[in-house]
């Protein structure tokens, strides 16, 4: 029953998300009669980049198996962004170290999350939720209410583009390729997928389960930290609510992109398709002139429709 369907399922989700994104974009251009098509695409790519960065990390976490999810992403983004901006203090020479600090903050958050999950046996949903409260508070306290602008070079870089493609997007594409290879062709990637399918069997097969989980949570939070730092530069400063919509976005792009929420099956390209799709849906609704209420309802219905049509998850034991 699952055998033939598996091949189809493997191909269906991520192609589907790209197709959907294209359809939405076309619908939008139909309305505006082609005006600003290029700009919309560029804007889509810019915003999609941030969804992709957090979505990649979330994808690895979710693939570890049912119940694994990182809800602390917005808090990590905020914290890392705040730390980075504050350290950089509008000075160009400080950019490199500032970015490193953001990554380090993310890594520490990831390690803390894992500590709660492992040492205190707290389910990941609750663990990352609790830690998100803590780290958001830390960010609020650390920022002292000030919103510091990014150094000019950094700010320019974050909105710069080449041939219509933003630098950040290029970087994110590169990162995606690396992570795609890691997922499919490295021991680490195989370990994640194995653990997601059958953690006991993984243990008996010599896979270092806990080490892999630790690395995954750290990576997810580090990517969130990177995303927060870049987003702060992109939007001219670290706002305290900047991560709010990226929580739901990170989960949505993972699932719409075809990764199994039950674990054990992941794919990177789908995350791009899903990110573009999500942004374009919102943009299209704006174009057609719908208000916030309708926008939210339609966004929700589209997410459900996409999942319902794609259907099916791995049968859990």
């Amino acid at each position: 029953m699952m055998r033939g369907q598996l091949a189809r399922l493997a191909r269906r989700p991520w192609i589907w998300s790209f197709v959907a994104a294209a359809v939405v974009w076309a619908a939008m251009e139909g309305f505006t009669e082609g005006q600003g098509a290029g700009e919309v695409l560029t804007a889509a790519l810019s915003f999609a980049t941030f969804s992709v960065l957090v979505g990649l990390g979330q994808m690895f976490v979710v693939t570890l198996g049912p119940g694994n999810v990182d809800l602390s992403i917005p808090a990590t983004m905020t914290l890392a962004g705040t730390i980075a901006m504050k350290y950089m203090d509008n000075q160009d020479p400080r950019i490199a170290v500032g970015i490193l600090l953001a990554l380090a903050a993310g890594a520490l958050v990831g390690a803390f999350n894992y500590g709660l999950i492992r040492a205190l046996r707290i389910p990941p949903i609750i663990a990352t939720l609790s830690s998100s409260f803590l780290f958001l508070s830390a960010a609020i306290w650390y920022s002292r209410g000030l919103r510091i602008k990014p150094p000019p070079a950094f700010g320019d870089f974050s909105i710069g583009e080449v041939l219509g493609l933003p630098y950040l997007t290029l970087g994110a594409i590169l990162l995606s390729i690396l992570l795609h290879i890691a997922l499919n062709r490295t021991i680490y990637g195989r370990s994640v997928i194995a653990i997601g399918q059958n953690p006991r069997a993984a243990r008996f097969s010599g896979i270092p389960v806990e080490l892999t989980r630790f690395a995954t949570y750290v990576m997810c939070a580090t990517l969130a930290g990177l995303s927060g730092c870049l987003f702060s530069a992109f939007s001219g400063g670290a706002a305290l609510n900047m991560g709010a919509e990226y929580l739901l976005a990170s989960i949505a792009v993972v699932v719409i992109g075809g990764t199994s929420v039950a674990g054990g099956f992941a794919n990177v390209p789908g995350i791009w398709g899903a990110s573009l799709f999500l942004f374009l849906i919102v943009a299209m609704l704006n174009t057609y002139g719908f208000g916030a209420g309708i926008r939210m309802i339609l966004t929700g219905l589209v997410i459900i429709a996409v999942i319902a049509l794609a259907g099916g998850q791995k049968t859990q034991r």
């Binding site: 949505a252 966004t299 589209v302 259907g311």
Partner: peptide
């Protein structure tokens, strides 16, 4: 449809 409730309820 055997869907993940997390995502459906998210929507």
């Amino acid at each position: 449809r055997d869907l993940p409730s997390i995502v459906v309820t998210l929507g």
